[in-house]
Every structure is written in structure tokens, then in C-alpha cells.
Amino acid sequence: MSSVIIVGGTAGIGLELAKHYAVRGRSVVVSGRDRERAEQAAAEVDKIAVADAGGNAPQARGIALDLSRPQDIAAALSDVGPVDRLVLTAIERDLNSIAGYDVERAVRLTTLKLVGYHAVVNALLPQLSPDSSVLFFGGVAKDRPYAGSTTVSTINAGVVGMVRTLSVEIAPIRVNSIHPGIVGDSPFWLAKPAALEDARRRTLTDRSPTTADVVDASVFLLENRAVNGVDLHVDGGRREL
């Protein structure tokens, strides 16, 4: 059976995507830097899927995968088998300005996303079928930089370039990216109510996107066979005031 692989599936949107596919009877693999945490996330996915499917859901797996060590990625993914859907959502939050540039942190984050994402696709390419699809997570910081987003804005812009090249290079496998805005029900932003309210006020929908909104948009990009080479913003139609 082909698997849905969620790289960075131990929490947040990645974990909710894993649950979405598991309750629909799909075999799911979630990865995290720490094996124990990945296995705990897989157990949580199993619990949801079994309850929803009456005990007939395939068992989820948790594996250790560190995108900041791209030389080890192929070995970590060597036994996952055929892959139907591949989602790369793993990222680290970072504040880095050009005035106080931290080279070590910049190299780590750039390696994690721009090299690590590519290395995952390279390692799994033999396991992908012509009907498979790949989804990269970026972010709207590529268009709306903020103080300290020097590295984050740059690598999220790089995700657009990855989609452009890979959608051609590995066709007919589809490659898309999603760029969420401030996700209103995430613990990170719930702890910053002033910033969350300001973001909501700037949307045309008068609401910030939720985790469920981003999951729904991700599934659309992964499953719609006519969608390829697309960079989708999910931000409530934000406008500057």
C-alpha cells in the first residue's frame, strides 16, 4: 500500500493532515527530529483513525528525520515503500536580522528547508508514481517581511523556485506549495492576542485562517489532479491598511 508521508507531522498542521488521511484509511508515516516524539504522534494518529474507522485503519508509523542533516535523509527514508502523497511542512521559527546576522542559524535554517526538502524528494523519487503529488510549506513572509525575517523570508521565497523547477523536472508528478498566513488557532499566535487581532483586522474575510482551513487547502493541492505548479496563499485575503 502506498503511504502518505508528512515530514514534520508531530504537531500542528502536519499532525492534523496526518489524521485527515488516516481516518480515510490511508497508510500514514509521520516524521520528526526525535523518534520518540514521532512515534507518539503516530500513536495519536492511530487513536483517532481507529475510533473513526471502527478498528480497520492502517497503522501509522513514526520515524526520525532531521532535515538539517541532508546527508542522512536517504538512510532515514530507505524503508518507507511506495509513496502516494508527500508533504513537507517541517520548519523552525527564527529571528535573524542582517545587522545582527547569525551565520550558523542562517545556514541551519537554509539547509533545513532548501536543501533538506530537495533531499527528501530525491530520496523518495524512486518510490513516487506518476499519480503521486508533493506539497511544500512556505509562508507569507516571502511577500511580507518583518523585522528579523531575513532568513525566513528568503527561504520561503525559495520554496516558489523549488515548485517551479521540480514541477517540470519530475513531471507528471505534481508539485505545489502552500503559504499560510497567521493561523488564528495555533498556540503560537493565541499567545500573541494583539498581533492576532491586528492580522484579523487586515483580512477581507474578517477572520484569520484556522488550522482546519490550511488542512483543507492542503488536501485540495494534494488531490486535485489539474493543479500543478501552484503557490497558494491561505491568509484570509489579507490587505495592508
Rank of each mutant, 00 (worst) to 15 (best):
D131P: 07
D131Y: 04
D143Y: 07
K113H: 15
K142R: 14
A119Q: 01
G139D: 11
S129A: 14
S133N: 05
P126A: 06
L112E: 00
V115K: 06
G138H: 05
P130T: 04
A123R: 05
S129E: 08
D131Q: 11
R144C: 05
L125D: 03
T111I: 09
S133I: 10
K142C: 03
F136Q: 01
V134F: 13
Y117S: 03
V121M: 08
V140N: 11
H118G: 01
N122D: 04
Y117K: 08
L128V: 09
L114I: 05
Q127C: 14
N122Y: 06
G116L: 01
F136E: 03
L128K: 03
N122P: 02
Y117L: 02
T111P: 13
V115G: 10
L112M: 10
K142T: 03
P130K: 04
P126Y: 08
F136W: 09
D143N: 15
G139E: 13
S132V: 04
L124W: 02
F137M: 10
V140M: 14
V134E: 02
A119T: 03
Q127T: 14
L112H: 08
V121N: 10
L125R: 13
N122E: 10
G138L: 02
V134R: 07
Q127N: 15
K113R: 14
D131L: 05
P126W: 03
L125F: 14
S132L: 01
T110K: 03
G139L: 12
F136S: 01
Y117E: 11
A119M: 05
T110C: 13
H118F: 15
D131W: 05
T111L: 15
K113D: 11
N122M: 07
Y117T: 06
K142F: 13
K113P: 10
V140L: 13
L114K: 00
V115P: 01
S129I: 08
F136Y: 12
S129W: 04
G139K: 06
G139W: 12
P130Q: 02
K113N: 15
L135G: 11
V121R: 04
T111G: 15
L125N: 05
V134A: 04
P126F: 02
V115F: 15
F137L: 09
F136T: 00
L124A: 06
P126N: 07
A141G: 15
A141L: 14
L125C: 10
L135T: 07
A123E: 11
S132M: 02
L128W: 08
P126H: 00
N122L: 00
L135D: 09
P145W: 09
A123M: 04
P130L: 05
G116C: 07
F136N: 07
S133E: 06
F137A: 00
N122H: 03
V115R: 06
A123P: 03
G116T: 00
A141Y: 13
G138T: 00
V140S: 10
A119D: 03
L135E: 08
H118S: 13
F136K: 00
G138D: 02
L135Y: 12
P145F: 01
G116Q: 02
V121L: 02
A123G: 03
